[in-house]
Amino acid sequence: MLCIETKDLRKKYASTVAVDGVDLQIESGQVFGFLGPNGAGKSTVIKLLTTLISPSNGKISVLGIDSAKHPLEIRKKIGVVLQQPSYEPTLSAEKSLEKYGMMWNIDKKTRKKRTEELLSAFGLEEIRKKKMDDLSIGQRRRVQVAREFMHDMDLLFLDEPTVGLDPAARRKLLDFLREQVKNSGLTIFYTTHVLSEAEYLCDNIAIINNGKIMAVDSPSELKNRFGHEKTIKIHISTVSEELKSKLSTIPECQIKLEPEPTVIINSTKSEIVLMNILKILNETDTKINDLSAIPTNLEEIFLKVVGDSN
């Protein structure tokens, strides 16, 4: 079942086009990563999908509901953690969760139970009585994300939820989210600038730039599509003139002398190039200290897709 569907989605502010013809089809029960550089239109798309703002053009259907006709019905079924912090400064972390549950019409008994579970799951027990105003940015962020799990939902929007979190808290959150998707069939729409996070968590990823979707696929498919150029590094002992001369005939490789002599291969046919270079190294009697193949990661793909689109 399609959880989110947009057709020719556009949002214009005065002379700026923030979202420019976005078509999305997102299946239920997955973590969908939404990546893009600053100002690419990620947060605007989230605000459109969560019905906070109306599109200038195009159609949005969330959980099978037309957002133009029944925005409130959509909001009743989704959870939203926006990019900006949101908190009530006078409430304690515990009271903040409890009151948020009340706002979502969760009965008192369930509220109490969920509050305890979430305080534990998000490592907030020690600061439960502290006022939100007195918490650090990371602690507030944890409460903000935990708070959203006080109510039931079919779809959760997380706009850079790990900003301000330390690595341990970040990993704990990602694992918690994975569990939620696995156990309850929740769909998560997730934006982040930390690409290793997206790689760890997301089933599918869309890359947006200048308000347009540049690519949508699973992380492995994106690697297959955009990561065909591989990098191999050969650390060598010395660089002789003969070696330089022979390697200059192979355009896919370059020599770097600092910090240590290294031959770097960047090629779509890196294995064949490697064979040729190994032959030259053997002929010139050059000793190999180390050889490493750098796996294509999402960051490289992201940079390539965004770079190409710019």
């Binding site: 969560t50 019905t51 906070l52 409130l72 909001r75 009743k76 989704i78 939203v80 926006l82 900006q84 949101s86 706002m103 979502w104 019409n105």
Partner: peptide
């Protein structure tokens, strides 16, 4: 913003 993205 948070309240407006909820059931209100």
């Amino acid at each position: 913003e948070q309240i407006m993205s909820g059931p209100f």
